[in-house]
Design a protein around this nucleic acid. Structure first.
Length: 470
RNA sequence: CGGGGAAUGGCGCAGCUUGGUAGCGCGCCUGCUUUGGGAGCAGGAGGCCGGGAGUUCGAAUCUCCCUUCCCCGACCA
């Protein structure tokens, strides 16, 4: 008898499918305050995997972790004109504390350029103090008008890097380096997500930045998601917070700063990029659980063999979980592990044991076959590698299939109903960007035909990638 | 803030038009039978129907006020 689908099918209602997955894979719950979320243990373990990998890459790029306060004096925000204008509407402000009205309201950080700028000014005196490369893992608060779990929550977790350099060229080089060496490579090699790395238009630029760069990914419904950004802040914050230094020539100069971040939004992107109608599909390199070893039936020999199998895999460096809950039906447990997107399920029952085999279910390939127990670790390793490659190839193929080369706004609008459009920026322009905006379509970024980053807003030959987005 | 909806056990919903004191599915608890694709049967727990005022012998249901939430747009990692 056919059961009702576990999840709302993607084709029926994609947003509903997303919400179903978040709930049924036990990733998160809505918090009591509008727009907040409770990240559940499984969802958090995914974030921890992301954090660990990104943190390693950030450190490899030379930045050091630090921590700055959650509370920022309101006056700090007002020091950079564009910054305050951009963030004012979404600030949470504390006006009462300790039972008293505060003399100066305190802002709950929406981002930390201002406080960090203040301290960079203290710490930087000489060109020898530069570059100053900082990063912090923190929560930030932005009172978003339309929250969506993981994608846009009032409070979210992220990493924000802040650096100061002696020259514009140094700052730019570092912002670009982070974009490629940390973000793009992490997304490509670990998340198995092909991202387009490009430059934001003036309209989409971060408040206070002179240049914003982005990693854009295509979701399963053809919409775009900004997965990470890297900003050149020019000397805007250096001016506002007086981050000055004496150069090797003895001249007093202002530093050039950058900032860059990725957030828990990546979890949402991961879901919408790889998930299918059976649930999440987590790329093996990221997966908190790469293999689940499942005892199909209550049976001492089966349970024993499951334990030794798990130990064997653990010893081979596989992240493995044992599922011995035989009081729950095997079918239910299989469904649950599929929902959670665990790449490989090894099911062991009396029948398998009699044959010296185990049933290997490949979540990503969607296949199921008997694998000899001997040498299973090697087999698993190759299945995981293949799964990683498959997820990337599938999402790249989707992006290519659903990206249209167009030259008119009308064609771009049509293409954006199912995917992305690439249109020469010279054909679109600022006016065309505004026109698309009225239909809910934005310029995600500008790229050069060879995939490189345009140097400026009006670099000849730049192509605009336009799409609907989250 | 503009435009649409909706508030009923943990979740999803019906009941409201035509007032009579609450029901279904999932989940939960107990027992038995099951366990290789979200198990079946039986029994059970759980709700002053968002808040307030009114009409009425009687309100989840009718009237008025309030509050909250969701969806579409403007803001955004």
């Amino acid at each position: 008898m056919a059961k009702a689908p576990v999840l709302t099918p993607q084709s029926e209602d994609f947003p509903r499918w997303y919400q179903d997955i978040v709930a049924k894979a036990e990733l998160a719950d809505n918090g009591p305050v509008r727009g907040t979320m409770v990240i559940r243990p499984y969802g958090y373990s995914i974030w921890e995997q992301m954090q660990a990998d990104v943190d390693r890459r950030i450190k490899a790029a030379g930045a050091k972790n630090a921590y700055f306060p959650l509370f920022i004096p309101e006056s700090y925000l007002t020091r950079e004109a564009e910054h305050v204008e951009g963030f004012s509407p979404e600030l949470a402000v504390v006006t009462v504390a300790g039972g008293k009205e505060l003399e100066e309201p305190i802002v709950v950080r929406p981002t930390s350029e201002t406080v960090i700028g203040e301290f960079m000014a203290k710490w930087v005196q000489s060109y020898r103090d530069l570059p100053l490369l900082l990063n912090q893992w923190a929560n930030v608060v932005r009172w978003e008008l339309r929250p969506r779990v993981f994608l846009r929550t009032s409070e979210f977790l992220w990493q924000e890097g802040h650096t100061a350099h002696v020259s514009e060229a140094d700052g730019r080089a570092y912002a670009v380096r982070i974009l490629h060496e940390v973000y793009e490579s992490f997304m490509r090699d670990v998340l198995a997500m092909p991202v387009v790395v490009g430059r934001k238009t003036a309209k989409e630029r971060f408040a206070g930045a002179t240049n914003t760069m982005t990693c854009e990914a295509m979701m399963g419904d053809g919409k775009a998601l900004q997965m990470g950004t890297s900003h050149e802040l020019g000397q805007n914050f250096a001016k506002a917070f007086d981050i000055g230094f004496q150069s090797s020539e003895g001249v007093q100069e202002l530093a050039w700063t950058t900032s860059w971040g990725v957030s828990t939004r990546m979890v949402g992107g991961l879901i919408m990029c790889h998930g299918d109608d059976n649930g999440l599909r987590i790329p093996p390199r990221l997966a908190p659980v790469q293999v689940v070893v499942m005892a199909v039936r209550e049976d001492d020999a089966v349970i024993d063999r499951c334990r030794t199998l798990a130990e064997e895999l653990l010893a081979a460096g596989v992240r493995v979980e044992l599922d011995l809950r035989t009081e729950t039906s095997a079918g239910r447990r299989a469904t649950d592990w599929e929902l959670k997107g665990v790449p490989v399920r090894l099911e062991l029952g009396p029948r398998d044991l009699a044959e010296g085999a185990v049933t290997l279910v490949d979540r990503i390939a969607g296949s199921k076959d008997a694998a000899p127990l001997d040498g299973i670790a090697n087999r698993i390793t190759s299945v995981l590698d293949a799964a990683q490659a498959t997820l990337f190839a599938e999402s790249l193929a989707r992006r290519e299939a659903r990206t249209a080369e167009v030259t008119t706004i009308a064609e771009a609008v049509e293409a954006a109903s199912v995917g992305w459009a690439r249109i020469p920026w010279a054909d679109l322009g600022v006016a065309g960007e505004v026109e698309l905006g009225t239909q809910g379509i934005t310029v995600r970024c500008l790229v050069m035909p060879d995939g490189s980053l345009p140097d400026s807003d009006d670099t000849p030959g730049a192509v605009a990638i336009v799409a609907r987005s989250y």
